[in-house]
Simulated assay, not measured.
Amino acid sequence: MVSFLDVDEDVLFPDSDEQPMADNTEQYEWIVKIKENLEIIFINNPQVFIAGDLLWYPLKSTLVAPVAPDVMVAFGRPKGKRGSYRQWREENIPPQVVFEILSPNNTKAEMTRKLEFYNIYGVEEYYLYNPKKLRFQGWQRETKKLTEIIPINNWISPRLGIRFVVDSSGLEIYRPDGQKFLTSIELDNQVQQERQRAETEKLKADKQKLKADKQKRRADRLAQRLRELGVNLEEE
């Protein structure tokens, strides 16, 4: 008879639930934008693990079905590659912050289950955005329970330090330094603009140096000519 302990852990706790990462392009873009901007914020902190659509197993038990938050952040866990987040391998540290981006295929029952899951297994902050209805919600752990954050507009995440702004056009997220979360294309445009600005400044500086060098050579030639004419430039 094969016992639970004899079965390969990868068989009991697979890395994939065979579900797509996103149901549409808008949901995917939001997942990537949040995940990658958080990576930028915590790039110099090796003990902040950030992942998108990664299965989270809170217990080493097949009785508890895992969930895959659209974005998860685990403080106190090293960066690195993982096929799934098996909490017993992570010093039993749960992700403290999770994000979900709602798609038309997400049912109310599914999202209720996720909220209950995050409530039970130790999430400190949970954020849910519906890009179609432009609705943003958040929950923060108070004592032992996730409680909805009201009001949510201009809320600053205690863990992440980021600020959420909600208006008639939807959700904007701002980094602790005040910069807005940008898409990869917007980030690339920003880099290109900065590079172009730096090149323009360099060309301007080079031009000014050439002009100064030319003026110096002219002054040197004039001084040499005056000396040849017997003018003592040292005399007042």
Results as ranks from 00 to 15, higher is better:
1 M>Y: 15
3 S>V: 07
6 D>W: 05
12 L>I: 08
12 L>P: 01
13 F>E: 05
16 S>L: 06
17 D>V: 03
18 E>S: 06
22 A>H: 03
23 D>Y: 12
23 D>G: 07
25 T>G: 00
25 T>S: 07
28 Y>R: 07
29 E>C: 01
30 W>F: 07
37 N>M: 00
37 N>F: 05
38 L>V: 00
40 I>F: 04
40 I>P: 00
44 N>K: 05
45 N>R: 06
45 N>G: 00
47 Q>R: 08
48 V>T: 01
55 L>N: 06
55 L>Y: 05
56 W>Q: 02
58 P>H: 07
60 K>E: 10
61 S>G: 01
62 T>N: 01
64 V>T: 08
65 A>R: 12
66 P>R: 05
67 V>G: 00
71 V>I: 10
71 V>Q: 02
71 V>S: 00
73 V>W: 06
74 A>P: 00
74 A>E: 06
80 G>L: 07
86 R>T: 00
90 E>N: 04
90 E>S: 04
90 E>V: 03
94 P>I: 02
96 Q>D: 02
98 V>P: 00
103 S>R: 03
107 T>L: 07
108 K>H: 05
110 E>Q: 08
112 T>Q: 11
115 L>A: 04
115 L>F: 10
120 I>D: 09
125 E>M: 09
126 Y>C: 03
127 Y>Q: 02
127 Y>L: 09
132 K>L: 12
135 R>T: 10
137 Q>S: 09
139 W>I: 04
139 W>K: 04
141 R>M: 03
141 R>Q: 04
141 R>P: 00
142 E>H: 09
143 T>E: 13
143 T>W: 11
143 T>A: 11
145 K>T: 12
145 K>N: 08
148 E>C: 00
150 I>E: 09
151 P>S: 06
152 I>T: 02
152 I>V: 07
153 N>D: 12
156 I>Q: 10
156 I>L: 07
158 P>C: 08
159 R>M: 12
162 I>K: 04
164 F>V: 06
166 V>I: 15
168 S>F: 13
169 S>T: 14
169 S>K: 14
171 L>F: 11
172 E>T: 12
172 E>Y: 14
174 Y>V: 08
177 D>S: 08
178 G>Y: 12
178 G>W: 12
179 Q>P: 01
183 T>K: 08
185 I>T: 15
186 E>T: 11
186 E>C: 10
186 E>M: 15
188 D>M: 15
191 V>S: 12
192 Q>R: 15
192 Q>F: 14
197 R>L: 15
200 T>I: 13
201 E>I: 13
203 L>R: 15
204 K>P: 04
204 K>C: 08
206 D>L: 15
208 Q>T: 09
208 Q>I: 13
208 Q>G: 01
212 A>V: 10
213 D>Q: 15
216 K>A: 11
219 A>L: 14
221 R>S: 09
226 L>N: 10
226 L>R: 13
226 L>D: 09
230 G>H: 12
231 V>Q: 12
232 N>C: 07
234 E>T: 13
234 E>C: 05
235 E>L: 15
